[in-house]
Amino acid sequence: MALVTAGRLRRRPRGAGRVPPLVLAFVLIPLLAEGFWVFWPAVQGFYLSLTKWDGISPPQFIGLANYREMLHDSVFHTAVLDTVLWLALFGGLSAVLGLGAALLLQQERRGVGFYRAALFLPVVFSLTATALVWQAMYQPDGLIDKAMSGVGLGSLTHPWLADQSTALYAVIVPALWRQIGYVMVLYLAGLKGIDPALYEAAKVDGATRWQQFRHITVPQLRSVNAVVLSVIVIDSLRSFDVVWALTRGGPYHSSELLSTYMYSTAFQSLRLGYGSALAVVIFVLAFGVIASYLVRAFREAD
């Protein structure tokens, strides 16, 4: 600051020639920490997926047999379908409803802070607490069934989590409850970033609200959409706690996701090799999203 000459130096004057060893250490120590706790175990995980292992005797190398088994494993097929359904419903609804909430709450009015906080509050709950809250709601003598009986819908009351036709949807609701506030915050920031002049111009041209939304808001939100998509896909492939705490993937696999199937295979049936192979499948599915996130990050990083 004190020196005007600074501006005359190289355009990118980050390093003064050689990189100081301290700076190298600055990168290497965190990298080692991550390598130790993440990359090295991940490599082992890939290797374990090629073995048959009960966690007790030493792992036995069996090549791709675990992956071949998946082809004929009907539970695996259910889990893949459910994961796709989960992605579509959980992802689609949280994006649409999150955007809706953001549109509703974007205006700076009195009391809007309270509404935003109310929608956002569940985001800070742990998934375990969320699951317990909703388990209480879904109990046969809980609020949902009581309220339904109260308004004359008693015939529709249900063991929501124990019926195979409703279990998956019953589990999506708490997950949405927790996710929509998050998506809303992302969209709120996106909406804030749109130049108000665009709307002014459109109004002058006599555009309706819908036209403004179609032709200004939606295109302007494109970059936020990409972010939301990444967040949703990564979160939904990961989100295991809610399903595990509420149904453990049951009844009879009707709410089984790849993540719960992996966990029960590995830690309940003690088929750690097959479980690792399922984890690799989750990784492969997530990879597309991770890669696109990384590509954007890559551009960003430059």
Binding site: M1, A2, V19, P20, P21, L22, V23, A25, F26
Partner: peptide, 21 residues
């Protein structure tokens, strides 16, 4: 920032590395 002027200009001396570590 002005207080830093007295330190030698070679970046990343051994002493600093040790301090960081």
């Amino acid at each position: 920032m002005n207080t830093l002027t007295s330190t030698p200009s070679t970046p990343g001396s051994r002493r600093q590395f040790l301090a960081g570590a």
